[in-house]
């Protein structure tokens, strides 16, 4: 048997998840504080869903906005980092099972990863 145990893989994943959540929550918080400090008096309409106006920017648009300290862009960057954490978790599993030479579970993790990437390409594409 290999020395890389399931327990070690879980600890690595647990650490990664905690760091991922801390970074993304911190980013969302910074964006949120800027958002509130620059907030006007009116509440934007959230009672009606506007399909035409997709509220989430493209990745390139978000990065441009972050550069100019745009509050909504910083929040969106934090949310994207948050959504990326479980995806990275699955990447950790692919690598971890590969280190264990467990072909079956490298395949299983890779299938899950492909499903996640398919979903994310709906946004990115």
């Amino acid at each position: 048997m290999t020395t890389y145990t399931d327990r070690a893989m879980e600890s690595a994943i647990g650490r990664m998840l905690r760091i991922g959540v801390a970074i993304s929550a911190g980013t969302v918080l910074i964006g949120g504080l800027i958002y509130l400090s620059s907030a006007g008096t009116a509440v934007p309409d959230r009672h009606h869903f506007t399909r035409e106006k997709v509220v989430f920017d493209s990745f390139a648009g978000i990065l441009r906005g972050v550069g100019s300290l745009n509050a909504a862009s910083i929040i969106q960057l934090g949310l994207l980092l948050l959504i990326a954490t479980p995806v990275i978790r699955v990447v950790f599993c692919v690598v971890g099972f590969a280190r264990q030479r467990d072909c079956l579970y490298v395949t299983v993790s890779a299938i899950v990863l492909l499903i996640l990437l398919y979903s994310l390409f709906q946004y990115g594409g």
């Binding site: 509220v55 709906q122 946004y123």
Partner: peptide, 8 residues
Amino acid sequence: AGIYLSRG
């Protein structure tokens, strides 16, 4: 999440 993001 990807589908939710793409649909706003």
